[in-house]
Amino acid sequence: MALLESARTGRLPAETVAHGKPRRRGKGRRDNLTAYLMIAPMAVLLGIFVMWPLAYSLYLSTFKISFYKDPQFVGLQFYQYVLESTDFWHSIWIGLYYALIVVPAGILIALFLASFIKTLSKRMAAFMKVTIYLPAVVSTVIASVLFTFMYQDEGVVNWILGLINKAPVAWLNDPDWALPAIAVPGIWLGFGITTLILLAALLDIPESYYESAMLDGAGFLQRLWYVTVPLLRNVLLYLFVTGFTLAIQMLDLPLIMTNGGPTGATSTPNFFIFNSFRDMTPYATSFSLTASLLLFAVLGLISVVIFRLIRSDKAVDG
């Protein structure tokens, strides 16, 4: 809290405390020096690997880049090209659509599993936690290959459908089904860690709240709605923000399972940019660079909106 206050006032805590006492101010300066020294490696790291490349990328995006000829200055032309590209906006929509399937579904499943684990004995809970966390350590590549096999005409998914006489569905080759089909491994890979975070949050809610609610005659659904969900709100928002930002940037699953197809139905923003980069023309190099910068802006905007939501809920745990 003190840190937040100082950030708002622009003054360091030591300075605030030591106001009007020269001896203490001297110590404050030494502490400042220590603090600056401690953050120096991170500042250098950010400078070299984030700030400088970002600034240089912005500069480069005003050129038509060729690795063999002198770059040609084109101003903001590529920004116009990207903003005019229907494929770019389509990919943003696909990313949002994917995130809208994966994040809420993942959180719901995780909430259900966490509530279930909470009711188990210690030993069973430990076993379940390991079991549920396992998919999180499976590589996306392996999961992609696994699910691609499962979705084949003669794969296990169509075999089950065959039992109820539904014709084989071309899961990965049907424009309506492809995105939901790749969202399933997306959910599977993510719910392990989400479950553990939610379980920790659930265990943090004092039992006395539930006991009071029960004394007041609250049923299961009422306890869930009036006790559990409000007290999980900040954790849920955190999961929503991080899940959303990660999901919209999904690359591996569409790259391996569908190559962005069929007819661009799984072309997420990162896949679209990667695919543009794979094109060998100098035009594509500048285009993919500019599209990356604009995606950065779009993701930034989404994050700003969600961070505002978080700030509005700060009082919940107060």
Binding site: R30, L33, T34, L37, M38, A40, P41
Partner: peptide, 14 residues
């Protein structure tokens, strides 16, 4: 002494 240690660590890392 703390400052000196911090300095050394940060210098090494940088």
């Amino acid at each position: 002494r703390r400052n000196a240690i911090a300095m050394v660590i940060s210098a090494v890392m940088t």
